[in-house]
């Protein structure tokens, strides 16, 4: 394949501690904690899959945490965010509560979708997350409509559409980019390019690997960067979201990353037909969490002991929520029929 991403897609590159410059240490520590929370929550969900406690399809984004954390920093509750099948991070980064997420994954009534959606259907409207679905690219036109509504409202709210590189192979992405551009809508398209669609590497699916080329074709300003660099993604997202709020129209952020687990489930070697063992090993050195932690430790903003304490604190929070979620009740059978329409019954 003719790679235009270069080092961004090179598993041996971009693995040094982050260049944090003069970033606010408190903000970096908050980013680190949220990334650790997402990482640990997904590890525990993965353990639940392995133990057959989680039955619904669970698509883990371990290794991709920086993107959602960086983008969400610049969003507010009245913004409108839409995700896909791999959206635990989108939910948690927006401030969605941990316990309802874990309860949802377990099919419990206390879940963020009342136990009716599972891992692939997450909802936290008060934080701005209006929904996630596994139909690839399914929410992208919905986000365009939410941006249209935001433009009509005139209060400076924006929409965010998260999708992967595979979604760019769906026609509706192109319709959506076109509508957003021609109507100058306040929306940020965030492509988490992890180089795989299910088990297929991008070299087997597209003639080149930079997804932002589709934004170019629709005259949407685009940035392609290292998705495992929370500082860089945050800076780019801040600019693009501010632009959209101010009426500049849509933006396209392509964040190159890598998922450590298979397409679905907890295993690292699940992906049929793909032997990515050596590459995965190298990508783990591009860990977005470790690169930030290393930079903070090197910059004397965090001690090794404090980092260990932070990890223990996050682990305790996740395990406590997991225990509660496991013990929570399932939805009543009446929900089968009484949630089909807004008016219960017929």
């Amino acid at each position: 394949m003719d790679s235009t991403l270069g080092d961004l897609a090179n598993s041996s590159a971009c693995n040094a501690p982050l260049a944090i410059g003069n970033s606010d240490p408190a903000r970096l520590l908050a980013q680190l904690r949220t990334m650790l929370l997402i990482r640990r929550a997904e590890e525990v969900i993965g353990e639940g899959v392995a133990a057959r406690q989680v039955i619904c399809p669970a698509h883990l984004g371990i290794g991709q945490e920086a993107i959602a954390v960086a983008v969400s920093e610049h969003l507010r509750g009245s913004d409108r965010v839409f995700g896909g099948h791999r959206s635990h991070a989108h939910y948690l980064a927006l401030g969605g509560d941990l316990y309802p997420l874990l309860a949802e994954v377990l099919g419990k009534e206390a879940g963020c979708s009342r136990g009716m959606g599972g891992s692939m259907h997450l909802y936290a409207a008060d934080k701005g997350l209006l929904g996630t679905v596994p139909i690839v690219a399914g929410t992208v036109p919905l986000a365009v409509g939410a941006a249209l509504a935001a433009k009509k409202d005139g209060r400076g709210d924006v929409a965010v559409a998260y999708f992967g590189d595979g979604a760019s192979e769906e026609g509706v992405i192109h319709e959506s980019l076109n509508l957003a551009a021609v109507w100058k809508l306040p929306i940020l398209f965030v492509c988490e390019n992890n180089l795989f669609s299910s088990h297929l590497h991008i070299s087997l699916r597209q003639p080149t690997d930079r997804i932002a080329r589709f934004a170019d074709g629709h005259r949407i300003p685009a940035v392609t960067l290292d998705g495992n660099d929370v500082v860089a993604v945050s800076r780019a997202a801040e600019d693009m979201i501010a632009g959209a709020r101010g009426g500049a129209g849509p933006g396209f952020l392509e964040a190159v990353t890598y998922r450590w687990r298979g397409h679905v489930g907890h295993r690292e070697d699940e992906d049929v037909g793909v032997d990515r063992g050596a590459d995965l090993h190298l990508w783990k050195a591009r860990d977005p969490v470790r690169r930030l932690a290393d930079a903070l430790i090197a910059g004397k903003m965090l001690s090794s002991d404090a980092y260990s304490a932070l990890q223990a604190d996050v682990d305790a929070e996740v395990m406590e929520a997991w225990r509660r979620a496991r013990a929570a009740p399932y939805p009543p059978e009446s929900h089968l029929l009484d949630r089909v329409y807004a008016e219960a019954g017929r």
């Binding site: 409108r80 839409f82 209006l130 929904g131 399914g138 929410t139 992208v140 036109p141 919905l142 986000a143 365009v144 409509g145 939410a146 941006a147 249209l148 509504a149 935001a150 009509k152 409202d153 929409a159 026609g171 509706v172 319709e175 959506s176 076109n178 509508l179 021609v182």
Partner: peptide, 20 residues
């Protein structure tokens, strides 16, 4: 609208989730 039935219908669904 442009001849984009899927995106236009999807956009209407999205706007309907935002009070329209």
């Amino acid at each position: 609208s442009p001849v984009s039935e899927q995106a236009c219908t999807g956009a209407a669904v999205g706007a309907s989730l935002c009070g329209y």
